[in-house]
């Protein structure tokens, strides 16, 4: 891939990288600020994870070039994401449905 980039394109990319850096810095400040609001756990969780996901998305999309990656990479990542999701959901459900779990009679 490296050979296909022209100097002009690379300079354009560099500007994007710097903008992404700015966005990440701002979002970090927002995360901390929200942390000091001491929201109840559920909204805090939603906001915290939402901001983290946006930041992670920016890193993955621009720094790791996932905006313009090949199908085979997407395939691997989508599959991994599915298994990860299954793991989270089933762990939490198994816990919730366990004797002495969340549902205490």
């Amino acid at each position: 891939m490296a050979q296909t980039h022209t100097a002009e394109e690379v300079r354009k990319h560099v500007r994007v990288y710097l903008m992404v850096f700015g966005a990440l810095a701002v979002l970090t400040v927002v995360t901390v600020a929200v942390g000091y609001l001491h929201l109840p756990i559920v909204p805090a969780l939603v906001v915290g994870l939402l901001i983290a996901s946006v930041k992670a998305g920016l890193v993955a999309a621009y720094f790791m070039h996932l905006v313009s990656e090949r199908k085979v990479i997407y395939g691997v990542l989508i599959m991994t994401g599915l298994f990860l999701l299954a793991m989270f959901i089933l762990f939490i459900s198994a816990y919730a449905d366990q004797d002495g779990g969340l549902i205490v009679s």
Binding site: F83, L90, A94, D97, G100
Partner: peptide, 21 residues
């Protein structure tokens, strides 16, 4: 094969819903 693992754990006090799954 990634979503069958808890059939090794039926006697751990697992609830009926998740055990059904």
């Amino acid at each position: 094969s990634f979503i069958v693992w808890a059939h090794h754990m039926f006697i751990t006090g697992m609830g009926t819903a998740i055990s059904g799954f």
